[in-house]
Amino acid sequence: MTKTHVTTTVNGEDTEFLCEPNETLLSVLRNELQLTGTKEGCSSGDCGACSVTMNGRLVCSCLVLGVEAEGAEIGTVEGVSNKENLHIIQEKFLEHAALQCGICTPGLIVSTKALLEENPDPTEEEVRYYLAGNLCRCTGYDKIIRAVMDSAEVMRGGA
């Protein structure tokens, strides 16, 4: 198969890559661009470990083809914090001990950011349903939900 040349933006940086027509965006990120923060847990869109944003929309990168990134803006966990500081969501995940092994954490951070951009003041139930596509096997979700609710409050400018 001939590889396809793709021009895209990843975390605000102009990026070019070559990929097979049937290669997933997940594989491109991890194997072509060495952005291994995005994790593979199932490759069937069930676990959310590979969550990224594409033109601002939350997607499972295992269900997107690399060629579909042409002209798009891709956001991964590597782009959540700036060079100086962690994002509030990242700080809150640490403060609330919302991770144990940490393999689901990049996906959850990306999903939480997408949630709070869409809905800055979610109820606990809204958080639980929005994040239902991100599996975590270690924590029982309790501390994750608390970290997200606390992030939302701080990002709204509350206490």
């Binding site: 991964t76 962690l86 393999i103």
Partner: peptide, 23 residues
């Protein structure tokens, strides 16, 4: 105490290297 875990920064930024992350 409830300290911040020492490996936490790498885990929330995607820098932590798991089993499939080494080439």
């Amino acid at each position: 105490q409830r300290t911040i875990r020492p490996d936490g920064f790498d885990k929330v930024t995607g820098r932590a290297d798991f089993g499939a992350d080494l080439s």
